[in-house]
């Protein structure tokens, strides 16, 4: 007896929504990047679940690419955070409103 596909979709939708809410409500940039990781993992769960249910390995290959993009995003994002911290000595997005002023 296998788990229905809809359960995986509900789980990944919940995780994705949590990531969206985290991006929207948190002030710390590091936690915002962690929430982006949550969203990427939610899509990866979807990819693997569909790959299993359609017996097609392409979904797992796409997870591989998503992982590559996540690694690149983390490297560049953390470098940006370090540069911001050096310029403003703050990692809270309330303090980073240079373009609004």
């Amino acid at each position: 007896m296998t788990v229905p596909l809809s359960y995986y979709l509900i789980l990944s939708g919940f995780v994705f929504l949590t990531g969206v809410v985290g991006v929207l409500i948190r002030r710390n940039i590091i936690v915002i990047l962690l929430s982006v990781e949550l969203m990427l993992n939610a899509t990866n769960i979807n990819f693997v679940a569909f790959s299993e249910y359609f017996h097609n390995v392409a979904g797992q290959v796409f997870v591989f690419f998503a992982l590559t993009v996540a690694a690149a995003e983390v490297a560049v994002g953390l470098a940006i955070i370090i540069a911001l911290h050096r310029a403003h000595s703050s990692i809270y997005i309330d303090d980073l409103n240079l373009l609004k002023r």
Partner: peptide, 21 residues
């Protein structure tokens, strides 16, 4: 997965968020 993803967003200390992730 659901509990820890909620904790990532909810916890105050970023170290704890990273560990629950």
């Amino acid at each position: 997965i659901a509990t820890t993803s909620l904790l990532v967003v909810a916890l105050r200390n970023p170290v704890f968020s990273a560990l629950s992730l």
